[in-house]
Design a binder for these strands. Sequence first.
DNA 1: TAAGATTTGTTCGTATGTATC
DNA 2: GGATACATACGAACAAATCTT
Lengths: 281, 281
Amino acid sequence: MKQPVIIPTKAPTESEPDSPNGKSAGPGAGAAAGASKGRNRPLAVAETIKDWIIAQSLEPGDRLPQEHQLIERLEVSKGTAREALKVMETQGLIRTRTGPGGGAFITEVSADHASALLANHFFFKDVSIAHIYELRIALEPQLVQELAPRVTNDQIAELRGVMSAYTRPPTSIEEERLQRVAELEFHAVLSRYSRNPVLGFFCGFLVRLLKDLAVCKRIYDEPNPELRERGVSYQEQLIEAFETRDAESARAIMEVHMRAAQRMMLQREAEIAKGFLDTDS
Amino acid sequence: MKQPVIIPTKAPTESEPDSPNGKSAGPGAGAAAGASKGRNRPLAVAETIKDWIIAQSLEPGDRLPQEHQLIERLEVSKGTAREALKVMETQGLIRTRTGPGGGAFITEVSADHASALLANHFFFKDVSIAHIYELRIALEPQLVQELAPRVTNDQIAELRGVMSAYTRPPTSIEEERLQRVAELEFHAVLSRYSRNPVLGFFCGFLVRLLKDLAVCKRIYDEPNPELRERGVSYQEQLIEAFETRDAESARAIMEVHMRAAQRMMLQREAEIAKGFLDTDS
DNA sequence: TAAGATTTGTTCGTATGTATC
DNA sequence: GGATACATACGAACAAATCTT
């Protein structure tokens, strides 16, 4: 029983009234409503198509009308229709295929795609390691607490599989870096198991943000055997708690783990910052 | 000191993973160089333009080259260039203006825009009131705890202004609904004050999600004087805690408030569901 | 107020690449 | 390999918006 909870709606267009001229109406205003004739911008066309999707309760996998049919029914040119489809493709709502039987198909917006779009929002902001860990400490214990009572044996096996990538000490710097990434993958997998889609997405996004940030700041460039060992130890404890379906202890383990990781990451960040000051310009 | 923390990244396309050039790629390098003819998709063009932005450290407000210049330098047709710009506009990275001195300008991706894009990801998922409140309980107390010691008098005044919209009992059903929305606005404003951009965004997004969901489920359609009074009372207490810069009590107040609101929303949700079962087919 | 310049926005006709049969 | 159906790409001409004079 699919329930579309959110009305997609809403183009970003007219956000800021920073231009003080009281220009009114124009094609920009209420374009989406009466898209039958005349002023049709691609965004309005995209909204109209979305309305169709909602009205007809189309689901992922369903196909949209063909390009030339869209052009007919929307009374727009090919270029405009293409731009509208491009908008929807960028939003992750459709995918197009060429060839017979091809066309635009509705797709679920994957977490990956949504993360990439969301990451743009933080591009010009100053996100720090501290910010991310503040949230991981608040959310990941909650995540494993809810997971523990209902985690399946298959899931536990998958987690063990991820862990197997870094149970052995690394033999090279490159392997060290890969192990760090795999360690983060453990948490990414955890977040995918969440029954709360929002919680799962938030946790997964934080991991992604951390990965970008860590790589960007080269925090993973140098070995840190202590962090690795403690990380593995905590994750093994967590698996044990999962096996006994012990929610409370899973939560406690994750909380301790997160706080320890936070301390170490911040310390490392500070060291690197100092290093830059010493050696750099 | 702006620090771009994230590599912007990532088209969803599955076809051609172009050259894995790092962030230090020059303007010339990239997709356009190799494929002057034939193989140039708008997405690749958009990525190339993003690479330019990074390489030249362009910031919000800066202007991109004009359309015809892009066409020249990228060796693509007008339609393709336009589609590429449309992609970036959809992602919220640029805004275009017509007329002399017009063109494509780099913009920060607003929280509103990012929220709208992210909401698409949850469109086909079953997000419930319970899911949202689980996260609000985890995050909003954290938010006000960090806010309390450093909240400004202006901010307190703004919060009072928002509250003034619903301190009086509503005189009509319509006013009742507007008051509920204003009450949510209180939390949206709070989230904007956060020094942690990720925490702020998460809290704001939850409010948005809740608003859509509540409207969708008609939870706000019927009066609920108890919820209103308790909400106002809690918010007044919170303002008091802000005035004394008491972080701990701000956190405690918000936690109690969130749990109370959760109980009431879930109860209301259940009632409505029952009502549907009774009256509906 | 009005005309002109500049730049994006839209449309159309046509050609080409690509996947299926 | 050929035919078909479909998206993808190109370029010229026109329309609309906005700034300047």
